[in-house]
């Protein structure tokens, strides 16, 4: 991550990509794009907007923008997790296809776009590398609200940003451990050495959302 990003953060610039013309956004040049990518803060709202267009309008241009940003990251993540390049490529394509097929399940009040894609990629990795399915908890309710409260969406984005910033601030040894835990490079006893992950308020917000959902189901 480059250090000099504060001016970019104060002016929300969408990290929309060349050749993709959608939403009320404009393309940024390559170097700006490099500086913006990898950050969740000013761009997360953009990903949610694109994701909602995929979900509600089967918008292929929005999908292409999400693909261009996320597919190389999924591929990098899978290679870090022990997949070879060919398998990571195939898996990243599968993950993006699943994003399209399961778009109706995307709920921006409970997960950022990156979080949601991570969960799809993780499950596909288990399926491909270990030939296993991953047992999933029961679903709550009947899926996401068609028109979620914008305040809830933004609040979750802020929590995600804060969590991202808190992870950045961890001592590098601790951060390395967490990365290795997610890449599958740590044994359970090594994972036990990870202490005090800075979840901040995101957990209490998700907890609150679950309480509301339970209340509505009664």
């Amino acid at each position: 991550m480059l250090a000099n990003t504060s001016s970019l953060q104060s002016a929300p610039q969408p990290a929309i990509l060349h050749g993709v013309n959608c939403c009320e956004t404009h393309a940024v040049n390559g170097s700006e794009h490099e500086r913006l990518t990898g950050q969740l803060d000013s761009t997360e709202n953009e990903w949610v907007t694109l994701m909602i267009r995929v979900r509600d309008h089967s918008d292929r241009t929005a999908f292409a923008a999400l693909f261009t940003h996320f597919a190389p990251r999924i591929k990098g993540f899978l290679i870090n997790s022990g997949a070879d390049a060919a398998m990571a490529e195939e898996c990243a394509q599968d993950v993006m296809t699943t994003l399209w097929q399961k778009a109706s399940q995307f709920d921006p009040t409970r997960a950022s776009v990156a979080t949601w894609i991570f969960t799809i990629a993780r499950n596909r990795r288990i399926d491909m590398l270990r030939k296993q399915r991953r047992p999933e908890p029961e679903d709550l309710g009947w899926g996401p609200e068609p028109e979620p409260d914008q305040e809830d969406v933004i609040a979750l984005q802020e929590d995600t940003n804060n969590l991202s910033a808190a992870l950045e601030k961890l001592p590098s040894a601790q951060r390395d451990l967490i990365q290795k835990a997610y890449f599958g490079d740590l044994s359970q006893s090594e994972i036990a050495k990870i202490t005090g992950l800075p979840l901040g308020t995101i957990k209490s917000r998700i907890r609150l959302a679950l309480d509301l959902l339970r209340h509505e189901m009664k």
Binding site: F77, F118, S164, I178, Y182
Partner: peptide
């Protein structure tokens, strides 16, 4: 899961 999303978003691009 959100931690995983952040790590994936920040991981090296291939």
């Amino acid at each position: 899961d959100a931690v995983g999303g952040i790590l994936m978003d920040q991981s090296q691009h291939v």
